[in-house]
């Protein structure tokens, strides 16, 4: 599943980083602690968080994450948007809570995996 498929399925707002919308999603990670994400998120995952400052994009870039979803209607700071565009990592938004968006993301990824295994 690509980031753009996730955007369409969950009706996410795309704040920035449009150049990265064709990236493949390897999984998801949920945390508001940057060291937790730094230590344990994996390449290609979508990061769900309520942190909106530009260090989020620094971490996302260092970890080669597929995209970042800001929850509960939070909007990114201007330099976060700038960094997202530079790094080609989509910065997405939703009015949903972390719990809801994580649940939907998990269900989508599981469903997608199931479809893939049926095809093969």
């Amino acid at each position: 599943m690509k980031v753009i498929d996730l955007v369409n399925a969950l009706g996410l707002e795309v704040f920035s980083g449009q150049a990265g919308l064709e990236k493949e999603i390897a999984g998801g990670y949920v945390s508001d602690l940057l060291s937790d994400v730094m230590g344990f998120a994996r390449e290609g995952e979508v990061w769900v968080t309520l942190q909106t400052h530009q260090n989020v994009m620094a971490v996302a870039s260092l970890k080669d994450l597929a995209a970042v979803i800001l929850v509960k209607g939070f909007t990114p700071e201007p330099d976060t948007i700038e960094h997202s565009n530079e790094e080609h990592i989509p910065l997405l938004g939703t009015p949903l809570s972390t719990f809801e968006v994580a649940g939907r993301l998990y269900a989508l990824l599981q469903h997608h995996k199931g479809v893939l295994s049926l095809e093969s």
């Binding site: 508001d32 940057l34 260090n55």
Partner: peptide
């Protein structure tokens, strides 16, 4: 508040 300072930094360093 920025999500740093969780006391995980040095253990992340040690682990890696």
């Amino acid at each position: 508040e920025m999500g740093f300072g969780a006391g995980m930094g040095l253990s992340n360093i040690k682990r890696n």
